[in-house]
Every structure is written in structure tokens, then in C-alpha cells.
């Protein structure tokens, strides 16, 4: 009988949706499910997870865990692994998940796979499926030894919606020490370029080749559509446009009625930020670009031919 330990995550005073996605994954694999909730004043959330399929929920409720630190969280997760001897430990691939999971893995000399989108069973063996090369390829991986650790991509599967009754057990965190000190969390100043309410977004990527082309090539289309302009991360990293234009997991997550991605290959971090759009158009000269996977309509061509033609056609359609 196998056992999976889920490392739960709390965000804005509630259980993260991603934690319930881990429940779905663990239940899909079968075997025992045990969960760990870490924080301060979190017994209610532990009860909540127990009701939502988390199985036996270990509740590490300790003032030292109020804010995430790698040292304190890793020490409690290791204690839970020692107490439960799971075969598989699941984390969400979030800023705290990818910060703590590799530390735990190295500390207990265990194999780990990150940003997993699926775990398949091959007889008794687990096969971990994840993207590589910025989502250009999928890969299948195997891990030797036990426990095996994995971080799972948020949104890769549906949250568990069942309501099996579990139980909550207090878990002694032991007031773990941390060498790092949490100072504060703050929302990045948005410079007034709020994309979250835009009906139409036209985003440009590295395919536009130089910053002037955002003004000369992209902007006429943006204006013809009455749209807002967005950008991919490489454009912002290169300083072509300010951070407030960035669409993606580390920028703005957008859900317009129409999203047009131009010269954007579709790195996973960008896809996460726009795949909830109602209708997606992709223009890219690389037919294999991952952006075409999430697009409703694609044009495989040189954007410098298509974009001016489109701006003109929209202009005349509007009369």
C-alpha cells in the first residue's frame, strides 16, 4: 500500500486551490493520503482540508510558521516525512514550493521532479510527466529510491471536489528556527497600466525584434482595435517595455474577450497568464511554437506582413 504526503499551502488566509489539485493527483494514484498544513492559527484550514479529501491532516500550527521561510518550513516537512514515511511527497510548484522542495530533497538525499503536469503508473512504478525547454517538449521521468518528491504545476489538473471525511492531528512543529528573516510582502507598484479589465489585449514578444517596432508595427493594430498593449517577459527583461505590460505568472494574469499574441512563442510562464482568455489569436512564424496549442486561431507567417495588413483590414471594417 503506497502513501502520499501532500504539503498544503495557504494563501490570503485560505487553502490554495493548488493544494486541492494535489489532493486530486494523490487520490488518482490510489493508496493512503496524508496532508500537512503549516502556519500560525491554521487549525480551521486543516479542518477544511480534512473535509475536502486531504485524508489525515497534520496541523503544524506554530507562531514560527506565520510567514514562509525555507529553513523553518523545510524542518517541519522533514519531520512529517520521518513521521509518516510516505512513498511520494507532493508540493505545488509555487514560489514557496520551488523554494523549499529542493532543500528538503537534498537534505534527505531523495530524487525530485519539478513542475509535473501528470503522474502515470507503469505497473508499480511512477512515471512523471513535465515540460522542458520552455514547453517545447514534454518528458517522462523516473525516480529511484523512496520517498520521491515532486512539485506539481498549479492548474495542471482539476481541484478535488469530493468531500471524504478526514481527520486532523496536531503536529508538533517544535518552534523551528530560521536564518532568513521575513521582512514583508508587497504588491508591485502598478503604473496605471491595468490589463485585468481590458476587453482586447494585443501582446508583442521577442519576435518584434526591437523596441521601436512596438510603436511602429504593434501600436497601429492596438489602436485600430481599441485594445490595450501587453508584452511577454523577454520584452520586459530587455527593458523594451515597463514591467506593468507583462502578461504571465509573474506579471498580470488576464482574461480578455480577445487576446492576440504576436511574435510570442508561448513560454509556460506566459501561457499561465493568458490561457484563460475567451478567444486567442496567435501570429508566429514558427509552426511548432507552443502558443498555437492554446490559441483558437493561428497564423503561421511573418508578423511584419500580417500585422499591418490586419490593422488596415480592421480600419476599413470599422469604416
Amino acid at each position: 500500500m503506497s502513501k502520499t504526503l501532500i504539503v498544503g499551502e495557504i494563501q490570503k488566509g485560505g487553502l490554495r486551490e493548488a493544494t486541492l489539485e494535489l489532493v486530486a493527483m494523490a487520490r488518482g494514484l490510489g493508496g493512503d493520503v496524508v496532508s500537512l498544513v503549516l502556519g500560525s492559527g491554521v487549525s480551521g484550514l486543516a479542518e477544511d482540508l480534512a473535509k475536502k479529501g486531504g485524508g489525515k491532516v497534520l496541523c503544524a500550527d506554530d507562531a514560527a510558521l506565520e510567514n514562509y521561510t525555507a529553513d523553518a518550513y523545510a524542518s517541519v516537512i522533514r519531520k512529517a516525512i520521518e513521521a509518516e514515511s510516505p512513498d511520494l511527497v507532493l508540493f505545488s510548484n509555487t514560489p514557496s514550493g520551488w523554494d523549499v522542495a529542493p532543500k528538503v530533497a537534498a537534505g534527505i538525499d531523495a530524487g525530485i521532479v519539478t513542475d509535473v503536469i501528470r503522474i502515470e503508473k507503469d505497473g508499480d512504478e511512477l512515471v512523471f510527466v513535465r515540460r522542458m525547454f520552455n514547453a517545447k517538449f514534454d518528458s517522462q521521468l523516473r525516480v529511484t529510491g523512496s520517498p520521491k518528491l515532486a512539485t506539481v504545476q498549479p492548474g495542471a489538473l482539476e481541484a478535488y471536489s469530493g468531500s471524504e471525511g478526514g481527520s486532523v492531528e496536531a503536529f508538533d512543529a517544535g518552534s523551528p528556527q530560521s536564518r532568513t528573516t521575513f521582512v514583508e510582502t508587497r504588491t508591485a507598484a502598478s503604473g496605471g497600466h491595468d490589463l485585468s479589465k481590458a476587453e482586447i489585449i494585443v501582446s508583442g514578444g521577442r519576435g518584434l525584434q526591437k523596441p521601436e517596432n512596438f510603436e511602429e508595427v504593434l501600436k497601429p493594430l492596438v489602436e485600430a482595435l481599441g485594445a490595450q498593449m501587453g508584452a511577454s517577459r523577454p520584452v520586459v527583461d530587455a527593458g523594451w517595455l515597463p514591467h506593468e505590460y507583462q502578461v504571465g505568472s509573474s506579471g498580470q494574469v488576464v482574461t480578455p474577450k480577445l487576446y492576440i499574441a504576436i511574435g510570442i512563442s508561448g513560454a509556460i510562464q506566459h501561457l499561465v497568464g493568458m490561457k484563460g482568455s475567451n478567444y486567442i489569436v496567435a501570429i508566429n512564424k514558427d509552426a511548432d511554437a507552443p502558443i498555437f496549442e492554446v490559441a483558437d486561431v493561428g497564423i503561421v507567417a511573418d508578423l511584419f506582413d500580417i500585422v499591418p495588413a490586419l490593422a488596415a483590414a480592421i480600419g476599413s471594417a470599422k469604416g
Partner: peptide, 18 residues
Amino acid sequence: KVTVDKLYVPTKGEGAEI
């Protein structure tokens, strides 16, 4: 402890209408 068995181009879903 970790080996990549296979790297492959993902099977496209319905994908975009081109």
C-alpha cells in the same frame, strides 16, 4: 536518482485553426 526516459514533442490538443 532521476532519469529522463523520453523527450518528445507534445501531442497537440485540438490546437489552433490555422
